[in-house]
């Protein structure tokens, strides 16, 4: 498995900490934050490949709002939603807004890892396409190397 950057957003600190620990043990570069606002702040500063987002969070931004912000700040980051049984509808709404997939909480850790890997693969292939397109463009118009991005 490739090493990639993961951001976990969940209001339950105990859950968050343990999950981050386990992910780090799997050689992933994982970080955890406890609210939507904190996630948005961090995403403005650092680049993540996959975001695991709890859709039900008390206070401030809820899951859907956070998802919108994430897609606004880092459109290429893939988002996995964590949801309870009662909020499957919210997950569906989230996927319409561009989330990659959803998981019912409590989830099997292996399922989470698998879906994260899929998400990262998708993101990587997407990144590759963008890179290829850029290379193609640069080989045609090398002078554009000096253009500001």
């Amino acid at each position: 498995m490739h090493n990639f950057r993961v951001l976990v957003v969940d209001d339950e600190t105990d859950f968050l900490e343990t999950l981050v620990k386990r992910l780090n043990k799997r050689m992933l570069d994982a970080k955890g934050v406890e609210s939507g606002e904190a996630a948005v702040d961090l995403l403005k500063r650092e680049v993540f490949d996959v975001v695991v987002l709890d859709v039900k969070m008390p206070g401030g931004m809820d899951g859907i709002e956070t998802l919108r912000e994430i897609k606004h700040i880092q459109p290429l980051a893939e988002v996995l939603l964590l949801t309870g049984h009662a909020s499957v509808e919210t997950s569906i709404e989230g996927m319409k807004l561009g989330a990659f997939d959803y998981l019912l909480k409590p989830m099997k850790f292996d399922d989470l890892l698998m879906k994260m890997a899929h998400a990262f693969e998708k993101k990587s292939s997407h990144d590759k396409k963008i890179r290829d397109a850029k290379i193609h463009e640069l080989t045609r118009y090398p002078s554009r190397v000096f253009d500001d991005e």
Binding site: E12, F15, T18, H85, K105, P106, M107, F109
Partner: peptide
Amino acid sequence: NNPVAIMVE
């Protein structure tokens, strides 16, 4: 769900 998820983790 929340405590259960924590226990599972």
